[in-house]
Simulated scan of single mutants.
Amino acid sequence: MQIGIPLETVAGETRVAATPETVKKLVGQGHTLLVQHGAGLRAGITDAQFEAAGASLTDAATALGSEMVLKVRSPQAEELAQIRSGAVLVGMLDPFDAEGLQRLAAAGLTSFALEAAPRTTRAQSMDVLSSQANIAGYKAVMLAAEHYPRFFPMLMTAAGTVKAARVVILGVGVAGLQAIATAKRLGAVIEASDVRPSVKEQVESLGAKFIDVPYETDEEREAAEGVGGYARPMPQSWLDRQKAEVAKRVAAADVVITTALIPGRAAPTLVTAEMVQSMRQGSVIVDMAAGKGPQGHDGNTPLTQADQVVQADGVTIVGHTNLAARVGADASALYARNVLDFLKLVLPAEKGLTIDMEDDIVAACLMTQNGETRRK
C-alpha cells in the first residue's frame, strides 16, 4: 500500500506520525512510504534519515494523496481537501469531535482514531493516550521548575540551607504518575491526590505522600473498593472532604500540577480562584487541562489561559495545551510505534487493508467508513 506521511500543520505541533525506525519496518513489509519534505525536522529527523530508511521524499499534495495517510492531528480543511476519497486516515482524530468526524465522513474517508482504542492489555502497545500523557507529565514538571524562582531539591551550602520545593499533583493517571516520578528525581517533596483511593499504593511506591481522606460511612468504603479493578464514583460527602483537604495542601504548595481531563467533557475545576489567592508569591501552577475547562479557554483552574503563561495574585499559571509536542523527538518515536502496532491489525502481512470488525481494537477505533460516521 502507498502510505503518506505529511508535515503536521497545526500551530506548535512538532510531532510526526512516522520515524525512520517505523518507516524501515513498513517498507520491509512491502509498502511504499511517501514522506513530505521537512515532515520530521521539528522532531529532529532529517529528510536524509527518512530516505536512508527507504522512504521517498515528496510534496504535501502527494503525501496527502496517498492510499493511506498517517497523521498526528486531525487534518485541517486545506489538508482534507487534498486527501482522496476512499483513502484510509490514521491518527489522533478526536473521537468526541462529532463535527470533525462528519467532515471526514463527507470526504469519503475510512478513518481510525487511535485515542479510541480500549484500555486493555492487548491494546497497550498502541495506546497513544498513555504514551503522550507520559511525556506530558514529564514536561509539566520541567516547565514548573523553569518558572519556579527557587530550587527544587534541598541544598546545603556554605551560604545556608535551601528547602526542597513542595509539589502537589492533582490527578494520578499516567501523566500524574510520571509527574510524581520526575519531581522526585528533581528532589522535591511531593503530595498527590486523586478521586480514586485505590491509587494510593502507586503514589507511595514512587516516593510521594497520598493525600488521604478517611472513610466515614459504609457507602464510602464500598465505593472505594471499586468493581472489576475499576474505582467507582465516590459519594459527594467524601468528595467535599477531599476538596477541603486538597485546599490546605495547595495553600502550602510551591508547585501545583493539575492533570484531570475527562474525554468528551469539560475538565473539572480542581483549583479555585480562592485557592490560587491562598498560595505564596512565586508559586507555580501547571494546568495540563488548559483549554479544556468549562469556559473553553481555562482548565482545572478558572484562571488558566490556553497557550499562555499568566500571573494571578503572584502565582504563575502555565497553560500550554500541547505539552507532548514540546518533547517532539521522543513523542514522535513513541507515537510512531503506537501507529505501527495498530497497522499490524489493519495491514496484516501479504494482505491489503483488512477491517476485521470482530477485533475489538479495530472496531473501537473505526470512526468513519462509506460516507458515514460509526462513532456512537
Rank of each mutant, 00 (worst) to 15 (best):
I3L: 12
G4H: 06
G4T: 06
P6L: 10
G12H: 12
G12N: 14
G12K: 09
R15A: 00
A17G: 03
A18M: 10
V23F: 12
K24Q: 15
K25S: 09
L26C: 06
Q29Y: 11
H31P: 07
A43H: 00
T46L: 06
Q49F: 06
A52Q: 14
A52E: 15
G54T: 13
A55T: 09
D59L: 06
T62Y: 05
L64V: 08
L64A: 07
V69E: 01
V69I: 15
K71N: 05
P75I: 01
Q76W: 02
A77V: 04
L80E: 06
A81H: 00
A81W: 01
S85E: 10
G86Q: 02
A87P: 04
V88S: 00
G91M: 02
F96T: 15
G100F: 02
Q102G: 08
A107F: 08
A107E: 04
L114C: 07
L114H: 00
T120F: 01
A123T: 03
A123R: 09
Q124H: 11
M126H: 02
D127W: 06
V128I: 15
S130C: 05
S130F: 07
S131I: 04
I135Y: 03
G137L: 03
K139R: 15
V141A: 08
E146L: 12
R150E: 14
R150Y: 12
F152W: 10
T157K: 02
A158Y: 03
A159K: 10
G160E: 14
T161M: 11
V162K: 07
K163T: 14
A164P: 14
A164H: 09
V167S: 08
V168H: 08
L170F: 06
A183P: 06
R185Y: 11
L186F: 15
A188Q: 13
V189M: 15
V189D: 13
A192M: 11
A192R: 00
S193E: 05
D194W: 04
S198W: 09
E204V: 13
L206G: 02
F210C: 05
I211S: 09
P214K: 08
P214H: 04
T217A: 09
E225L: 14
G229K: 06
M234H: 01
Q242G: 12
K248P: 12
K248N: 10
R249I: 07
D254R: 04
D254P: 09
V256P: 11
A260H: 02
A260Y: 01
A266I: 04
V271P: 01
V276H: 01
D287R: 02
M288A: 10
M288S: 06
A289V: 10
G291D: 08
G296I: 11
H297Q: 12
G299Q: 07
P302T: 10
A306L: 13
D313W: 11
G314M: 03
V315Y: 04
T316Y: 02
T316C: 00
T316G: 02
V318R: 00
G319M: 11
L323Y: 12
A324P: 13
V327D: 11
L334G: 00
R337K: 15
F342H: 05
L345I: 05
K351A: 13
G352E: 06
L353R: 12
T354Y: 09
I355P: 06
M357A: 08
D360V: 03
A364P: 03
C365F: 00
E372N: 13
